[in-house]
Design a protein around this nucleic acid. Sequence first.
DNA 1: TGAAATGTTGGGGCG
DNA 2: ACGCCCCAACATTTC
Length: 442
Amino acid sequence: MSKICVWIRNEFRLNDNPALIYALHQKKSIDVIYCHHNSDHNWKLGSAAKVWLQQALLNFAKDLKSQNLVLEIKEMNPIAFFQEKDCYDEIVFNKAFEPALVDQENKVSDILKRKNIKSKIFNGNYLFDPELIKNKQGQPFKVFTPFYKHCLAMFEDLIDSQFKLQLKEYDSGSQVASCSQIDALNLQGVDKPWNRSWQEKMMSYWNMDSKKLIRNFCEHDARKYQEQRDFPALESGTSKISPYLRFGQISPFRIYHEAKKVNANEFIRQLIWREFANYTMFHFPHSINQDLYPNLKHIKWDNDAEMIERWQRGLTGYPIVDAGMRELWATGWMHNRVRMIVGSFLIKDLLCHWTIGAKWFWDTLVDADLANNTMGWQWVAGSGVDASPFFRIFNPYLQTEKFDPQMLYIKKWVPEYMTGDYPLPIVDHDFARKRALAILKQ
DNA sequence: TGAAATGTTGGGGCG
DNA sequence: ACGCCCCAACATTTC
């Protein structure tokens, strides 16, 4: 009897999952496999993302059950799994672009070729395949705007070909799982609820029904996105869709589709930033660990452990910075505007290399995504493609005046700022700014 | 998807 | 009416 294997990596969904949909059309017996394995030593799944992953796995298993399928979770390297396993006549999966996963995918493909097992690879995680986009000189784009325009021009083709095939509707009532349900999942590679109260509290900020979330956002808030997205105090100023996208619980095709219906162009533009981040990671894989460009290599970084800890704990004495860091710790998420502010502060005021911030975000964000995280930090540092120049230094007070004028966001996360029991700034911004510029000049 | 420093302009007060 | 100064408002340059 012929058997097909759907190898799940970062797409925990039934809807718009090309590999899975293809398998469902084959009228074969289907195995759905997820290999839980740290493929990149530098970037092992972070603590908050682990919590999210468990939720995603549970809900996905539930969804699969509705199609009479079982999610098999393997605690092993997929390369070893496919090396051993001999019962499939076809293996299908969706492309991933993290360097370690590209490597993994190549090795698996080699094994399958040697064994003469048919395999099919789909583009399911990104709107555009980064291998297919080049500028007129045949080089990868290094500036966002031309890349963005190029993508917009390609949407027509995309709608014609891929979309019709992909936009399938299944109903799911995904919910936040309790710790005991997570325990029952018994994922060995994942540390057990090391801190249940942190985990429960963090997940209390979230609802796992991503479909409802994106529908609601596109119907009510997406049109106001351009005007509201920079104000962290506004609850529906942004979609908060990032962790669902990271784990593929919602597809970029679905988001594009919903956003297009209401002409939410700025929202689509941000979705293209995600494409650009992935594209950049694919073409410049070293950038996940080092400066993409060497323009800052002579800067002598401070990387002071005590300062870093104050930053991590939200005790810098700068309310907008501390609010962001505390929102991150509590919810596993931080507003984008505030990510830029805390990033600028860590790099330019505290003189810490961006990788220090990237590691902390990696461990604490539920949406921790290697491409987006890398691009964000290199952008703030000024060492990446189309990055903000190093001398562009955010002034935390001016940023507050502009984007949290009533200090509602600060009141929410740093209530003691209002009552006076609040630490003094760990560094004087004016001094720090001049110091950073002097170092750059050197 | 900055901010500060520096330059320019033009109106009003005033001798 | 005129020149001079001040300075706000805006523009440009610089880091």
